[in-house]
Amino acid sequence: MYSLFKHAGTLSVFKIRYCNGAFETCARYELASKGRTVPLRLMPNGHTLKAPE
């Protein structure tokens, strides 16, 4: 997921707010730090990206 955020553009706001900012609140970081599998589409805010219906 980080590869999606590290590019300049609208998505960099996630990197600035979470990866470089309050990383301890990142849902992905929380799971990873507990040794759990991080779902591919889990966003830092805890929501999961869904395919359009």
Binding site: L4, T10, L11, V13, M43, L49, A51, P52
Partner: peptide
């Protein structure tokens, strides 16, 4: 779709 979904969430 992936990009659009992330942009909407942002």
């Amino acid at each position: 779709e992936l990009l659009a979904a992330v942009q909407a969430m942002a």
